[in-house]
Write a protein that binds this DNA or RNA. Structure first.
Length: 464
RNA sequence: GUCCCCAUCGUCUAGCCUGGCCUAGGACACCGGCCUUUCACGCCGGCGACGCGGGUUCGAAUCCCGCUGGGGAUGCCA
């Protein structure tokens, strides 16, 4: 039975990189008919908040990633404490009374000399009596894991193959902080072991943590899971995608009018080849069906805003149902133009869904359906070249129409062309400017055939 | 600095394992054309890559070594 987990820490909105890790973990579990576990890693009490936790849960649901089990590390501190004690008792870990400032100083010195810092093991060989004594009097201590000398830890990464790291590269590391809270590298092992996680799928930035964790697995007598380290996502400048790059949270894309299916799809494409699916537009179900961890790329991928934008357009234009579009678009439209009639909006969506790539963009493009706008500069200039009598004729012709359709609108233009000798293009332009105030936008026959007739006439009348 | 990972169009990728089918395929972006009452959509076409140097081999994008370049880690963050 395959069991994977996604372990975000609630210290901010869910990052795209994390989201992709979650997606791949999820796909792997589902592909193997296994379980997907969500675990909130909130051992850092300083930075973790309930608000961020809620937002992560919300965003995960929004993306369509459902989990089978849920855990919160802050509720499991007793368990960690117990295992920390075990490690101390078995001689795999020890109390350390070194001052944080001193360590910091040593670290800086080492770095200045261009050397890798290792904790020198000052407190490693304290006698039992001394430890007892300082525990009573000193108060502040951390627990460090005793890293064996000269070990080379190897593991077979599912994506990268064999990875070997000499543990001499790092010193005895902290597993319990001075405030008594356990550290990531320690709890992650206990949780993954206790929760019977079979496959740990996570970011490449955890590769160097893996040997530390394997050491703890061994010390505790647990069998390590399989590991798979995903390449990181890079920004346009080829550094790790971070806040500096602008919109990097799932929330950002949700708020900016992207649909979850498109974001899910795009994230799948980043680092995973969809070649076996045979296309790039992939549903969650297809992704589950075809997902293979072996098809993950090894090199970091640059996040392309352009491609996500395009993909979102594909979803709006040809994948999503009208009902879904309506449901998604409604809050955006109502936020911008107050209450709207559902049937009116439905009609608009049906006729215009090819015109925008995001919901936010739709709000702008659909403006003529909800608001009258004065002509902009370019429109004014065009307007000055147009014989104003055309507006009167348009009013007269359109008034006479029982129902406005693109077809009979064409007839209207033809009639005016005949009676005035104006070029059809100019007549259309005049109509467009009067209705939208702009030279660009959605096809004017589409707009006028949906816009209430009285509103069309009202706008035209302003130009006579 | 040290350790680890990586290296095909600007970007995401196919091909690499099992060398010849690669004149290196697709997608986004970009450019041009068509469609057209504008912008878009759509359709057609174009530009564009095996980082460098050595091997191995009849033959290398594919295998080996070195270099260079990029990324990550180096926390009482995760």
């Amino acid at each position: 039975m395959v069991r994977t987990r996604f372990a975000p820490s609630p210290t901010g909105y869910m990052h795209l990189g994390n989201a992709r890790t979650g997606i791949f973990s999820y796909l792997f579990a589902r592909h193997h008919n296994g379980s997907f576990i969500l675990r909130i890693e909130d051992t850092d009490r300083e930075r973790s908040t309930k608000e961020f936790e809620d937002s992560i849960l919300e965003d995960l649901k929004w993306l369509g990633i459902e989990w089978d089990e849920f855990y919160r590390q802050s509720e499991r501190f007793d368990i960690y404490k117990e295992y920390a004690k075990k490690l101390v008792e078995s001689g795999h870990a020890y109390y350390c009374f070194c001052k944080e400032e001193d360590i910091e100083k040593q670290r800086e010195e080492a770095y200045a000399q261009g050397k890798a810092y290792r904790y020198p093991g000052t407190c490693r060989h304290l006698s039992k009596e001394e430890v007892e004594d300082r525990l009573r009097n000193d108060g502040s201590y951390v627990i460090r894991f005793k890293v064996p000398d000269g070990r080379v830890v190897s593991f077979d990464d599912l994506i990268r193959g064999n990875i070997s790291i000499n543990v001499d590269d790092f010193g005895d590391f902290v597993i319990v902080r001075s405030d008594g809270s356990p550290v990531y590298n320690f709890v992650v092992v206990i949780d993954d072991a206790l929760m019977k996680i079979t496959h740990v799928i996570r970011g490449e930035d955890h590769i160097s943590n893996t040997p530390k964790q394997i050491l703890i697995y061994e010390a505790l007598g647990f069998k390590p899971p399989e590991f798979a380290h995903l390449p990181v996502i890079l920004g346009e400048d080829r550094t790790k995608l971070s806040k500096r790059h602008g919109g990097v949270s799932v929330r950002f894309y949700k708020e900016n009018g992207y649909c979850p299916e498109a974001l899910f799809n795009y994230l799948c494409l980043l680092g995973w080849s969809s070649e076996k699916v045979g296309k790039e537009i992939i549903s969650k179900e297809e992704a589950v069906k075809y997902f293979d961890i072996k098809d993950i790329n090894l090199s970091p991928a640059v996040f392309s805003h352009d491609k996500l934008y395009w993909l979102n357009g594909v979803y709006i234009r040809e994948i999503l149902s009208e009902d879904r579009l309506l449901e998604d678009l409604l809050p955006f439209i109502e936020k911008a133009y107050k209450k709207v009639d559902i049937d009116y909006l439905r009609k608009i969506i049906k006729a215009t869904r090819k015109e925008y790539n995001t919901y936010l963009e739709a709000v702008e493009k659909l403006r003529p359906f909800f608001e009258h706008k004065e002509p902009d500069e370019a429109a004014k200039e065009e307007l000055s070249k147009i014989d104003k009598s055309v507006f009167e004729l348009l009013i007269k012709e359109i008034s006479a129409l029982e129902q406005i359709t693109p077809e009979n609108l064409k007839a209207v233009v033809k009639n005016i062309q005949k009676s005035t000798g104006l070029k059809p293009k100019d007549i259309w332009h005049a109509l467009r400017i009067a209705i939208t105030g702009s030279l660009e936008g959605i096809a004017i026959d589409v707009i006028v055939s949906i816009l209430p007739k009285e509103e069309t006439l009202r706008r035209l009348s302003k130009f006579v």
